[in-house]
Amino acid sequence: MTISKNKAGEYAKRGVGIAIIPVICLVVMSIACAASGTSLFASQSSFQLYFRGLAYVLLLSFGVSINMHTGRFDFSTGAQMLIGGVIGAKIAYASGLGPVGMILIGAVSSAIFGCITGLLYVALRLPPMIIGLGMTLVLEGVVAIITGGLKPVGFGTDSSYYSFAVNIGAMTVIMLIALAFMIVVFHYTKFGYDYRALQTGQKISVNTGINEKSNAVICYTISGMMFGAAGALSICSTNGVTPTINFSTIATMFSCFLPLFFSGFIGKYCNKQIAILLGCISYEFIQIGFGQISFKVASFTSDVYKVIEAVILVVFLIYLNNENKIIELVKLKNFIKKRKDKSAATEEQ
């Protein structure tokens, strides 16, 4: 009886831990939208845009998390996204392969560039940031050459690309495939086992015979694949793109920080990849909410919600890095209150 009570308590705690952030984001943004005279999901198209944004940020977050969680910070994320998306768009549109073809080609192209980045990283043994910066410069330059001098890449009157991006079913399939892939590869293969060993103890893992170099190259390749797919989806969302260079792609990766930090908390209660999905779900509620609010409130501009998003990130980070202290503080206060109540009751008696 006690054991099943404990188990039930454990499951309840887990359930709360998993759901709390998505629920808070949903509730807060719904209230904020209602206060602004709109609603979070005003119509069918809001759901379409939500799933589109979710798929994009999920692919991006998966890709960034692979390297970031092993201490490798790769600046070339945005550049890989851009080059994969551009190559995918140009080949798919020219050959009539459509959006699915575009995403596949984009994923493969960026996987190749990711692999090159990884090979440079293991061969030169330089800090990942240096490799990332160098590759950003090179890849952006290559994009400029591919596009004949940064000419716009588009789909003419073919609206299938945009329609694909707002197809809830298609986006759900993409997300499920990505999620399944990440769970299987990182949790049920030797590669994933080695990855997690290296994540927590690099020296010990290498000493036990884990091939750190091949593991790193595969990580970069898989990340590249995710970025290419995300880049292709991004281009579908705007029905084309006009590339820019001079480090303009670096800012792209920062949009997945908040979902990844959300997942840092949720991941204590469930599988890491599912935690990332839930983090992205929470983040996308905020994004859609901002869009709905700014539609109604003219002064709620993109600069204002950038600041708000940054504040949310900082506050959440503060909580995440000081969770124990905060809990102690809460418990201590409760403890002191109980003591006071007890001594007050004793005095009365």
């Binding site: 119509s43 198209s45 589109r52 969302s237 705007t238 994004q287 869009g291 539609f295």
Partner: peptide, 13 residues
């Protein structure tokens, strides 16, 4: 920016 917020507003409008 032509981001999600832009698409949301344009769609709503």
């Amino acid at each position: 920016a032509f981001d999600d917020a832009f698409s949301t507003k344009l769609t709503n409008s």
